[in-house]
């Protein structure tokens, strides 16, 4: 698995997230269940292929998200994804994370990510709802869909990202 193919797959995931997921989420819950699939992949890349890959993926896909759905400001997703991806990498890069560890990391990272995005928008007065309400309204319900997705792609994602680093270390050894 080369890094180019990985980027291709993640772009496909990003496109599917914007174009197909709105149809899968039942009518009436569109405002409450918010998918962050590309962010889940960034967290996986931090755990299984290292913090620098995570930083690059985070900044790249965050920026893509910011530009394609530009509504109020550019940069919120870029910053949040890059930062959280990098620090997940700093914490867990050296350990071999098991499935439970990986899922709980994805959960915590998603909570952090949503919180960060919320407070950035709050700081620029784009929303004026309270944090407690936002948690109950969309952060917690969407956490479950993120975890379900993380569980579904755990095996392929781990294999792909680990092969990404293996390729790199092989090259270094030669």
């Amino acid at each position: 698995m080369t890094i180019n193919r990985m980027i291709g797959l993640m772009i496909l995931l990003f496109i599917v997230e914007g174009a197909i997921m709105p149809w899968i989420i039942p009518a009436g819950y569109g405002e409450r269940i918010i998918t962050h699939f590309s962010f889940v992949m960034v967290v996986y890349s931090a755990m299984y292929s290292g913090r620098h890959h995570a930083l690059l993926f985070g900044i790249g896909f965050g920026l893509l998200q910011d530009i394609v759905y530009f509504g109020h400001l550019i940069g919120a997703h870029t910053f949040a994804m890059g930062l959280i991806g990098y620090f997940t990498g700093v914490l867990l890069e050296r350990k071999r994370a098991t499935i439970m560890m990986a899922l709980s990391m994805v959960g915590i990272a998603c909570l952090l990510y949503d919180t960060m995005i919320f407070f950035i928008y709050k700081a620029f007065r784009i929303t004026n709802e309270t944090y407690a309400w936002a948690v109950l309204d969309h952060i917690l319900p969407s956490l479950f869909i993120q975890l379900a997705f993380a569980l579904a792609v755990y095996v392929p994602a781990r294999r792909m990202f680990e092969s990404l680093t293996k390729l790199k270390t092989d090259e270094e050894e030669q």
Binding site: G18, E31, H36, Y69, G71, H72, H77, T127
Partner: peptide, 9 residues
């Protein structure tokens, strides 16, 4: 496409 950001739909 529809944005996946709760504060920017």
């Amino acid at each position: 496409s529809v944005s996946n950001d709760a504060n920017n739909r």
